[in-house]
Design a protein around this nucleic acid. Structure first.
Lengths: 102, 102
DNA sequence: TAATCATATTAGAATTTTCTAATATCCTTA
DNA sequence: TAAGGATATTAGAAAATTCTAATATGATTA
């Protein structure tokens, strides 16, 4: 697989409301699937599918701990990356409000 | 629209091989549509559609110059962001090769 | 080792995205 | 103002993604 395809795969993994929420939850540290499942409003199998997509794209890693599976963000720079995305989007909202507000 | 939706929209815009290629082409600076059209292997209307998606997601901005339209990256941090994505993916490839190679 | 808890996989329907082809718009120049 | 060049829009078919429901796997405990 070419580098560009991997980049697209990586970005695509983050481009989903549920998956982005999952990754944000993990910014503070490792969580098991059961904890991730808590306030996400959809089925367990769906969560599992999203986790697989995030793993396959190298966003998350998993590790077994007894009967539980712990997930964590694979690379610290992913947190930085999400912060940049947030900044860009926020700036954009502010710019729009400026133009509307006068 | 909520912040998270905008973040997803932004990331989704970048998550397509053609669109990522377009944005990378623009890292060096502004280009008109005709220049972007050059070595991209698909129809003009399709290119135009991708450009709209990138605009709508605040990745690019456009500006008219006579009969031409120039596109550029809206926020410098987008370049930084793409570099981080590349680094993460590259590191991942190297790690995998390490494990395979011994 | 049977039962149970935690997580993963599969199949297929529903939704969304993408592309092509046709057409429209908007600027420039003759 | 007609013609041509540059870009955008639209409709709809094709392809990809997402979700649900059912089932499977794997570890723990009774």
């Amino acid at each position: 697989m070419k580098i560009e395809d991997l980049e697209v795969k990586f970005l695509k993994a983050l481009s989903h409301p549920v998956r982005l929420k999952i990754v944000k939850k993990l910014k503070k540290g490792t969580l098991c699937v059961c904890e991730l499942d808590e306030d996400l409003e959809f089925s367990q199998s769906n969560l599992s599918q999203h986790l697989r997509i995030l793993r396959d794209a190298s966003v998350l890693t998993k590790e077994r701990d007894g009967s539980r599976i712990n997930y964590s963000i694979k690379d610290e720079r992913i947190i930085k990356l999400l912060d940049i995305v947030q900044d860009i989007v926020l700036k954009d909202i502010l710019d729009i409000n400026d133009k509307l507000g006068g």
